[in-house]
Design a protein around this nucleic acid. Structure first.
Lengths: 191, 191
DNA sequence: GATTTACACTAGCGCTTGCTTGGTTGACCC
DNA sequence: GGGTCAACCAAGCAAGCGCTAGTGTAAATC
């Protein structure tokens, strides 16, 4: 058994698993279905992952890690104004929804299927991502760009953004940049 | 078999099923677990519901129907200003999250486990609810209370509100009314 | 040339699943 | 006091589940 590495092979299998988890849901996806999608037999699957749970954890870890990297990069590239940073975060968030949609949908819907150890590990990753948001929102509050309760504003914004996976159509007329712009315009009170 | 009625007994069983579906998720909740929670044997369950799917549909229908009734009542009770109506809708939404929390969480997370016929039927109910929101948002746009794209504003607001089931603690210091007030303040641009 | 490693295979164990069947119970009704 | 009916039960079926054991093999490493 070859568990817990991050070979390119395992990454590819993880990506395929994510797709099936979205289509069927974690519980309804059997190891036999996963194996068939991957072009191997069900027994061979356990060479790459300790058990079915670990596949779920791998999918979510991959997506969250990418989101974190992209958000950090976006913040480094933009100017220092609170508005530019808000917009950069929103756009980055929506862009990962495009490139890593499957993983994010899984993270959203199947989070509770993780066993406690995996959940603990992954929630640290997620906290790191949310901390970026809170930092940006704090700056916007301090600048008077937005008003209200720090905690509530952060949750409302993350809610609006996360909800986009339910309706956003990447093939439609609106770009992630359009959406980010519209969201920021909605919550900012310009002077 | 006694399927498709709406006896008080069935309503009570539906309520108990909702609780289990939230705790365990639909797929992991077995008919034996449901029966035990209800104080009957697993076979008896199929006297009240045609199959497991129908229990899920009943849970979601119940919650959505209640939300619709409450929202309509709230709109009738408040004055005609766009701001008052926005706030009434938001408060009503958050209040159903308190009283019917289980059903709404199930609707959110297990919607995709519905078979196509049930999904079709229930999406009409949900559309009726969302239509109320769009009406109120249109009025607010027309009054200049909020700005932006009609479609996007509606989705962002619903996202922020629906997301509250992930973090809102009814036992905490904030009332649904506080939240509704804060949300409306966030998105309105007063003159 | 021998050994190890990575990856795949077949076969199947022990258990759980949603649901069916055939029958019993007790309250109510004319 | 026979008939009706919702509500329930015990038992079990066929199918499917996650996972293990043991084996084969080509490439990499010594």
């Amino acid at each position: 058994m070859n568990v817990m590495n991050d070979s390119p092979r395992r990454k590819e299998l993880t990506r395929q698993a994510a797709q099936l988890f979205v289509q069927e849901g974690f519980d309804r996806t059997t190891v036999r279905m996963l194996a068939q999608e991957m072009g191997i037999k069900s027994g061979s699957l356990f060479h790459h992952f300790r058990d079915k749970q670990e596949i779920l954890a791998a999918v979510i870890e991959e997506g969250t890690q990418n989101a974190l990297v992209i958000a950090k990069a976006a913040l480094e590239e933009c100017d220092n104004s609170a508005e530019a940073r808000l917009q950069a975060m929103a756009r980055a968030h929506l862009e990962t929804l495009l490139t890593d949609r499957n993983a994010h949908v899984v993270a959203l819907y199947e989070w509770r299927r993780l066993d406690p150890e995996a959940r603990d590990h992954l929630s640290h990753l997620r906290d790191a991502y949310e901390a970026l948001w809170e930092e940006v929102i704090d700056a916007a509050l301090a600048e008077g760009l937005i008003h209200g309760d720090r905690f509530l504003v952060a949750r409302f914004v993350m809610g609006a953004l996360n909800w986009t996976v339910r309706w956003y159509d990447p093939a439609g007329p609106r770009s992630p940049d359009d959406l980010a712009h519209e969201l920021v315009a909605m919550i900012t009170h310009r002077v």
